[in-house]
Each structure stands twice: as structure tokens, then as C-alpha cells.
Simulated scan of single mutants.
Amino acid sequence: MGDELSYVYAVGVRIPRGVVADLRGIGDHPVRLVEDGGIAAVVGSVPADEFTAEQIEERLQDLAWISETARAHHRVVDVVGAQAVVAPFALATVYRDDARVEQILRERAGAFAAVLDRLRGRAEWGVKAWAGSAPQRSEGGRASSGAEYLRRRRAVLRESERETDVAFDAAEKLHGTAAGGADAARRHRLHEPALSGRSEPMVLNGAYLVHTGHVDRWRAAVEEAGERSGLSVEVTGPWVPYSFVDEGSR
């Protein structure tokens, strides 16, 4: 193994070389294209001693490293993805050299071509939804006994559970509308308040692959459904379709 490894950001087709001419990625290393059979990999160099399997596993516990690396990774993918159809690779995907990257392009040419064809003319959009803030409830003054206090608490908890169920039912309907107008849909893990920065519980974190010619109609339907839902809804995008790249093609 040499002093550097080849870090792959994405694969794509018809990527203009000028897009990567002045583009720099992780560690401020320049980005280049490695091509084989009409498919190109967007590649940069990284220090071999910092991207061993052991080092990567350890650094994935380091939030500062993940944040810095992810920003550089996504910036490269976003710049190239704005000019060509690309399928992003997972963070910290490395190979021993460019020759190995070319070999991967040959071996997986069919899978890469299928994914890129599915993504052509489409972008990823996100829909997040949170339950409305629960109203403040008065427990009617001081409880007359321990049993009365427990009865009131159980009533409050039952009402809270009912409202949560109603919010999740509304989220299912919202997801159905968003997925119905998309070519593909994914449900992501719901964020805890500490991660979302909101006190209300998140009830939907969806990603949707939408044809660029259908975006206006799709957004209008989602926004109308969001208004009817009683939820706090946020629509984001367009993004490079990270959520719709099959793991087996990487």
C-alpha cells in the first residue's frame, strides 16, 4: 500500500472534466475523474495511514471528524451532481489506488449503469413533520390524595398518547401523498429533540425521488396535505439522491 489511497465520492456519466478542474475535497486534496467504459468515478487522494479500516472505525466515533469529512464529501458530490447524473458513495469509501477503482468500475458496470439510469432526471426531496405542541393542561388544583394524584397523571398520559397516535396517523397520510407522487420513497429514522433542535416529537422523516418535470405538482400536493394534517411540516430539496443509491452497487 502506498502513502495515499483513492477516496471515491461518487460515480457518474457524462461528467464534464471542467467541473473537477479546480475542485478540492477532503484534506483540501484536488479531485479527479477515473474513467472506464463510459462511467467515471469522482476521486480524491487521502493519506493511507489515516484511512485504514481501524482508523475509520475509530474516527466514526468522533463527531468533529465526521462533520468535517461529511461537509467536504457532500460539497464535492453537490458540485458534480449539479452538472451530471451521479450516484454518491458512502462516506469514507477508499481503494488502494486508481487502478483498483477502474477495476471496480468494470466489475460493477451493469449495476452502476442501472442506478444512474434510474436517477437520471430526478432529484431527492425531503419531508419532515413534527406533532403540534401539546397544550398546557391544568390538573385542577392540589390533589386530595395520592390516589387522586395518580388518577390525574394517568389521564394526562392517556391524552398525550392519544394525541401522539393522531399525529402518527396524520404523518402516514402525509407520507402516502408524498410517496404517491414520487418514483421512490424511503423512511429514515426519526430524530430525537436533541438532534432536531425542536421540542415537539418528530413523526415523519421521509425522502422522495421526484422527476424534475413533476416537482411543482408534487410540492403543491405535499404542501396542501401538510396544511390539512395539523402537523408542522418542512419540505427540503432538491438534493443529490443519496437515499436512492442501492448499497449493492457501491
Score class of each variant (00 low, 15 high):
Ala111Tyr: 02
Ala109Tyr: 07
His214Asp: 15
Pro238Leu: 09
Glu227Arg: 15
Arg250His: 13
Ala123Asp: 12
Ser6Pro: 01
His211Tyr: 01
His214Phe: 11
Val20Pro: 00
Val203Ile: 10
Ile15Glu: 01
Pro201Gln: 15
Ala129Gly: 11
Pro238Phe: 05
Gly237Tyr: 07
Ala114Glu: 11
Leu105Met: 09
Arg189Ser: 12
Ile56Gly: 08
Arg120Trp: 01
Ala40Trp: 05
Ala207Phe: 12
Pro193Glu: 14
Gly110Ile: 03
Ser243Thr: 13
Val166Asn: 01
Ala225Asp: 04
Glu54Gln: 15
Gly237Asp: 09
Val42Thr: 03
Arg100Asn: 03
Arg106Phe: 10
Ser145Met: 04
Val203Tyr: 05
Tyr208Asn: 04
His29Cys: 03
Gln136His: 14
Ala90Val: 13
Asp49Tyr: 09
Trp239Lys: 02
Gly121His: 08
Ile26Asn: 03
Gly181Trp: 08
Val235Ala: 03
Leu33Gly: 04
His214Ser: 15
Ala143Thr: 00
Phe89Arg: 13
Val43Ala: 02
Thr93Asn: 05
Ser144Cys: 00
Glu234Met: 07
Gly213Asn: 15
Asp98His: 06
Gly2Met: 06
Lys173Pro: 01
Ala84Val: 01
Ala53Ser: 14
Val245Leu: 07
Val222Cys: 08
Leu105Asp: 03
Asp98Pro: 13
His188Ala: 14
Arg153Asn: 07
Ala179Val: 12
Ala184Lys: 10
Arg186Ser: 13
Ser133Arg: 15
Arg120Phe: 03
Ala220Gly: 00
Ala41Gln: 05
Gly140Tyr: 09
Ala64Pro: 01
Asp246Glu: 13
Asp183Gln: 13
Glu107Pro: 01
Gly141Asn: 03
Asp183Cys: 07
Leu119Ile: 04
Lys128Asn: 02
Pro193Phe: 12
